[in-house]
Amino acid sequence: MNLVLRIWRQASAEVEGRFEDYPVSGISTDYSFLEVLDRINEDLVSQNQEPVAYEMDCREGICGSCSLMINGTPHGPRPATTTCQLYMRHFHDGQTITVEPWLSRATPVIKDLVVDRSALDRIMQSAGYISVHTGEAPDANTIPVSKSRADKAFVAASCIGCGACIAACPNASAMLFVAAKVTHLSLLPQGEPERSHRVRAMVVAMDREGFGNCSNHYECAKACPKSIPVSLIARLNREFQHAGLLGHEYGGPIHHAAHEE
C-alpha cells in the first residue's frame, strides 16, 4: 500500500501547529497503524528530522496510552478498537489519512500528537477508590456479590482511561469516563459506604477540570474501544442526583489535594 499521512505537528503547547503530509510506501496490510507511524519516524530520523511524537505503550489495547484522531474519529474507523490494534487492511491504497491529537481545554497538547490527560487522574484521585487500609480486609468470600452485579461492575471497570470518549464528544465531556469509574465502585457492596461522597467528589473534580457537559449525543460510546455503554451516564446522573438531593452526607466538605508536577 501507498499512503499519505497528514499529521498534526506542533513543537510545543506555546507555538502554533500545522498539518504536514508524509507519504509512505510499501506498507503491508498487516501493518498496524502505529507501525506505519514507526516507519515514518524511522524515515524522518534517517533524514535528520525530528520524528512525530505520539503516545503508545502496550500495543495490545489495554494500557490506554495510544490516542489518535484518525480521519476525525478517535482510534480510527473500526468500532471497539484502540489505535494500536488498528490494522492497515481497514484503509485503502492511495488514501490520505488525517491524524490529529485529542484536543480539548482539559487535555492540552504537549507536543505533536501527545496531549496531557492528567485531568483524568486528578478526577480519580478525588475519590475514585474504596478506602481500605492494607490488612483490614475480611476474607474475600465474606460478602457474596451476585454474578450479574459483579459482571456489570466489570464492564464498567474495563475502562482503560484513554480519553477517546472526550475526544469524540462535541462538548469534550468526560461523563462516560466518570460514569464508568463511578459505576464500577457503586455497584459493589464494598463501595457502598462511600458511594454518595464518591460521586459528588468526582463530579466536582470533573467540573473543575473544564470538561464540557453531556448533551446526549452518545458519540462517546461509539468511540469507546472497550464498548462502555452510554447507559452508564444515566446511572451516573442518577447516582449524582440521589447523592446531591437525598444523600445524607450532603454538605460534607470535598477536599482537593495539591499536586506536584
Partner: peptide, 23 residues
Amino acid sequence: SGNIIDQCVAQGVPFAREYGGYL
C-alpha cells in the same frame, strides 16, 4: 497469597464470581 485476594476484593476488584455470588 490469600491476603492479597482479600485485599483486592475489598478494594473493589471485580473478580469472576459464580452464580451463588462467591469467587
